[in-house]
C-alpha cells in the first residue's frame, strides 16, 4: 500500500537564499513603518531611517533575486517551479529601487509617492516571500 501526497515535492530554498529572502521582509516593512511615522510627525529622522532600510532591503533583495534568476536559468527542478517567485522578486526589486530614488528627494518631496511605493513594495515582498517558501513544505510520504 502506498500513500502519495504529491502536491509539493520538497525542494527547499538553500539556507543562505532563505536568509536573503527572509531579510527583505523586515527591512521593507521597517521602511513602510518609518514612512508612516514621517508622514504623521514630519520628523525627518524617520525619512533617514526609511532610506537606509530600503538600501539594506535592496542589498538582500538583489542577492536573493540573483540567486533566483540563476536557478531559473539552470532550469533544474527547483528553477522550473520558481519562475513566479523570481518574477515577483524582480518586481519587488525594481519598485524598491524606484522607491530608493524617491527617498533621495529632500524632506516632504518624498511624499506621498514614497509612502505609496513603500506600501506596494511591502505587499510585493510578502508575495515574493510566500512564493519563495511555498515549495518548501515537507511533503507527506510513506
Amino acid at each position: 500500500m502506498s500513500i502519495s501526497v504529491g502536491r509539493t515535492p520538497t525542494h527547499p530554498l538553500h539556507p543562505v537564499h532563505a536568509v536573503l529572502l527572509g531579510g527583505c521582509v523586515p527591512l521593507f516593512l521597517g521602511a513602510l513603518l518609518s514612512d508612516i511615522a514621517y508622514a504623521r510627525s514630519y520628523e525627518v529622522q524617520w525619512l533617514n531611517f526609511a532610506s537606509w532600510l530600503i538600501a539594506g532591503a535592496l542589498v538582500f533583495c538583489g542577492f536573493a533575486l540573483l540567486w533566483a534568476v540563476v536557478e531559473v536559468l539552470r532550469r533544474d527542478r527547483r528553477g522550473r517551479r520558481r519562475l513566479g517567485y523570481a518574477l515577483m522578486l524582480l518586481v519587488t526589486f525594481v519598485v524598491g529601487f524606484v522607491n530608493a530614488l524617491v527617498h533621495a528627494k529632500d524632506a516632504w518631496a518624498t511624499m506621498p509617492e514614497g509612502l505609496i511605493l513603500s506600501a506596494l513594495v511591502a505587499i510585493f515582498v510578502l508575495a515574493a516571500t510566500w512564493l519563495g517558501f511555498a515549495g518548501t513544505r515537507t511533503a507527506v510520504t510513506a
Binding site: 520628523e43 525627518v44 529622522q45 525619512l47 529632500d106 524632506a107 518631496a109
Partner: peptide, 8 residues
C-alpha cells in the same frame, strides 16, 4: 544646514 530642511 540643508538644501530644504532635510536635516530637520
Amino acid at each position: 544646514n540643508s538644501n530644504i530642511t532635510e536635516r530637520g
